[in-house]
């Protein structure tokens, strides 16, 4: 599914990722944990194609294709999805317009026929209902006036609509209370499938009690310094990140 080899990336000339290696197979859920400033969000932006992140070395292959050669929208159309740590508010663009435009762009890329208004509305209403989102929420401007939990649910709704084969969840738990977290996690879990892989990025173990990963990696100072099973998350919760040293050590 996804193969990251020796990935180095800089932001404003400063090297943040210093040689990441990671292979994710179909259906697997990997978690990346790490202290603040370890490069977690940089990794998610580099994979999703945000401007301003320069890859200086290494490669990322996604379903046999060179991911880094693609524009952000092409990656999305190929099946990469980023659930944002801070979903963006877009006044004046309704959720429905946004999602219909996105869904039809992705369908067109895949050679599928575009959905008309009726088909689209039927689909989005069904998906929204599963996430406990009402009609008002899907008609409102994208994320405008949404609570933190509603924004995250809106991102998961987008994921449910676009049906990516690889989803990156960037600090999805940040700013959520326990009820909102459970709702979002249920939404994510319902999207787990043997064909869909996920990369869950988080600082805390808490999220991983709800979205249980197959593999856990520790990212510190731009490198993966340790990998293990789901029990590694619990160990980190107990011991903290101190043992992974300082930037100098890395």
């Amino acid at each position: 599914m996804l193969e990251i080899k020796n990935l180095h990336a800089t932001v404003d000339g400063k090297e943040i990722l210093k040689g990441i290696n990671l292979t994710i197979n179909p259906g697997e859920v990997h978690a990346i944990m790490g202290p603040n400033g370890s490069g977690k969000s940089t990794l998610s932006y580099v994979l999703s194609g945000r401007d301003g992140y320069e890859v200086t070395e290494g490669s990322v292959t996604f379903q046999g294709k060179d991911l880094l050669a693609m524009e952000a929208e092409e990656r999305a159309a190929e099946g990469v999805f980023l659930a944002f740590q801070y979903p963006v508010e877009i006044p004046g663009v309704s959720n429905t317009t946004f999602l219909k435009t996105a869904l039809n762009a992705v369908r067109k890329h895949k050679g599928l026929p575009e959905l008309d208004a009726m088909q689209f509305l039927k689909l989005i209403r069904a998906k929204a209902k599963a996430l406990n989102m009402n009609d008002d929420m899907i008609k409102r401007a994208v994320n405008v006036g949404f609570s933190g939990g509603e924004k995250k649910r809106n991102d998961i709704l987008q994921m449910a609509m676009l049906e990516p084969s690889f989803a990156i969840l960037d600090e999805t738990d940040s700013g959520l209370d326990i009820d909102a977290l459970k709702l979002v996690a249920d939404g994510v879990n319902s999207l787990r499938s043997p064909e869909r892989s996920m990369l869950v990025i988080t600082h805390y173990q808490r999220l991983l009690s709800y979205i249980v990963p197959d593999h856990v990696h520790v990212l510190a100072y731009g490198r993966i310094v340790r990998s293990g099973g789901k029990e590694l998350a619990l160990e980190l919760e107990a011991k903290g990140y101190a043992e992974f040293g300082s930037p100098e050590a890395a």
Partner: peptide
């Protein structure tokens, strides 16, 4: 930011 959010959902620039 809004531009990237839209593009990250597959909408051409």
């Amino acid at each position: 930011e809004a531009l990237f959010y839209l593009r990250a959902r597959g909408i051409p620039a």
